Simulated assay, not measured.
Amino acid sequence: MYLCPLCQQALVLNNKQYQCVNRHSFDQAKEGYVNLLPVQQKNSQDPGDNKEMMQARRAFLQADWYRPMAEQVGATLQPLQVTTLLDLGCGEGYYSNLLQQQLTIEEQHGIDISKSAIRSAAKQYPQVHFAVASAYSLPFAAGYFDAIVRIYAPSLASELSRVLKVGGHLLTVTPAPEHLLQLKQAIYSEVRLHSDAVTDITGFQHVARERLSFQLTQLTATDLMQLITMVPLGWKFSAAVKAELLAQAPAIQCDFYLDLYQKVAKA
C-alpha cells in the first residue's frame, strides 16, 4: 500500500508495523493511521494548521456549510469510474468521508502533514486509509491512483503525475473571484478578487471547469467565528472589526472553481 519515505521501497504491514527491506519501520497508530512524514520533510516541529484553526474547520465542515461543494466534487468524479482515490491535504477527513459515501471506491486514501488532523480523521472514518505524509513526496507507487482530489492543498505536479495512472484524473478546488467576498470587504478598503485564470499543470491536460456559487445565509455568530478562524484571512481581523462583522452577521458568498485535469502519456 505504501512506499517507505526514506528509501522508496515497498512497506509491508506486520504486527501493526510497516517495514521495508532496508529495515525502516513505521508504527501503525491505535487509530489506524501511519505517520510517514520523516523529520527531514517537516518545516516545523508540528507542521500543518494550528489547533485553533483545525478545531474551527472541523466544526464548520461538520455543520455541512460546504456540503454543496463536496457533493459537486463527487458528482464530477461519478462518471469517471474511480476505484482508487487520493484526497490530498485531507485534514480531518470531511471530504474523504463524503466521497466514500457518494462513489463506488475500492480503496480510498487521505494524507495530510498535520498529525492531529489525521488522528482525528482516522478515529471518525476507519473505512478510509489515512497517513501523515507530504504532498511533495507522496508515499505511493507510480500509477497507483485513478484520481486525486486536491481541495486548496499545495502540491508538486511531478508527484501528482507520478502516482496517477496514465489517463487518470486530478480534480482541483480553488477559490473563484468572489469567494468569501464579505470577509474581504470587512478588512480591506479596496478588495482584490481571486484570479479566474486556469492554472497549467505540467503533465496534465485541462479537461473542464465548473463554477459553483452559493451563499451562507443562516450563519450563527459561532458559525461565522469558526469560518473566520479557519481561513488564512482570519489573521487580518482586528478584534474590533471581528466584533462588528459578528454583530452584522451578513450572508457570506461562497465561490469555487472545480477544474478537472487528465494525466497525459509522455511523448
Rank of each mutant, 00 (worst) to 15 (best):
Leu36Ser: 00
Leu6Met: 15
Val241Arg: 15
Ala122Cys: 00
Asp196Tyr: 10
Leu6Pro: 02
Ile148Met: 11
Glu210Cys: 06
Ser195Ile: 11
Pro126Lys: 07
Trp65Lys: 03
Asn15Phe: 12
Ile252Lys: 02
Ala157His: 11
Ala59Ser: 14
Val128Cys: 00
Arg67Leu: 15
Leu181Thr: 03
Glu71Thr: 12
Ala153Trp: 00
Ser189Trp: 04
Gln248His: 04
Ala240Lys: 15
Thr199Ala: 12
Leu156Gly: 03
Glu178Phe: 05
Phe214Met: 06
Leu170Gly: 01
Leu6Arg: 14
Arg192Pro: 04
Val39Ile: 13
Ile105Thr: 06
Asn22His: 12
Val207His: 08
Ala141Val: 13
Gly143Asp: 04
Leu11Tyr: 05
Thr172Lys: 06
Ala249Val: 13
Thr76Ser: 09
Ala63Leu: 05
Ala267Phe: 08
Gly168Met: 01
Pro126Cys: 06
Gly143Pro: 07
Leu260Tyr: 01
Leu6His: 13
Tyr257Asp: 11
Thr83Cys: 08
Ala243Tyr: 08
Leu224Lys: 00
Tyr2Cys: 03
Pro177Ile: 11
Ala221His: 07
Ala117Ile: 00
Arg23Lys: 11
Met225Gln: 14
Ile201Trp: 01
Phe60Gly: 07
Ala208Tyr: 08
Gln45Phe: 07
Phe26Lys: 03
Leu160Thr: 07
Ala240Ser: 15
Leu180Gly: 02
Ser134Gly: 11
Cys7Leu: 02
Asp64Phe: 08
His179Tyr: 06
Arg58Asn: 04
Phe256Pro: 01
Gly91His: 09
Thr76Lys: 09
Tyr18Leu: 05
Gln182Cys: 02
Tyr136Cys: 10
Leu180Ala: 02
Ile228Leu: 05
Ser120Leu: 11
Asn15Thr: 14
Lys42Glu: 07
Leu258Gly: 13
Ile113Gly: 00
Phe140Thr: 01
Tyr257His: 14
Val34Thr: 04
Asp196Glu: 14
Val34Cys: 01
Thr202His: 11
Pro139Glu: 09
Ser114Tyr: 04
Asn50Gln: 10
Val198Ile: 15
Ala10Cys: 00
Ala56Asp: 01
Gly93Lys: 10
Arg162Trp: 08
Pro47Cys: 14
Leu233Lys: 06
Gln124Asp: 09
Tyr94Val: 07
Glu159Leu: 06
Pro47Lys: 12
Lys242Cys: 11
Gln55Cys: 06
Gln218Thr: 06
Arg119Cys: 09
Glu159Cys: 04
Pro126Val: 06
Ala240Leu: 15
Leu160Arg: 04
Asp196Ala: 15
His109Phe: 15
Leu164Ala: 11
Ile111Arg: 00
Tyr2Gln: 04
Cys7Met: 03
Ser116Cys: 06
Tyr94Lys: 05
Leu61Cys: 06
Pro232Asp: 10
Ile113Pro: 01
Met53Ala: 07
Cys20Tyr: 02
Gln100Asp: 10
Cys254Thr: 14
Pro68Thr: 00
Leu183Lys: 00
His206Gly: 07
Glu106Trp: 08
Ile148Ser: 11
Gly32Asp: 12
Ile148Gly: 08
Ala239Phe: 13
Tyr125Val: 02
Lys263Cys: 08
Lys165Leu: 09
Gln9Thr: 12
Ala265Tyr: 07
Leu61Ser: 00
Met53Asn: 02
Gln19Gly: 09
Val39Gln: 13
Thr76Leu: 09
Glu106Leu: 11
Ala176Ser: 12
Lys115Gln: 12
Phe256Ile: 03
Leu193Cys: 03
Ile151Thr: 09
Ala131Val: 09
Ala70Cys: 10
Thr202Asn: 12
Pro79Leu: 08
Gln17Lys: 15
Asn50His: 10
Tyr66Gly: 08
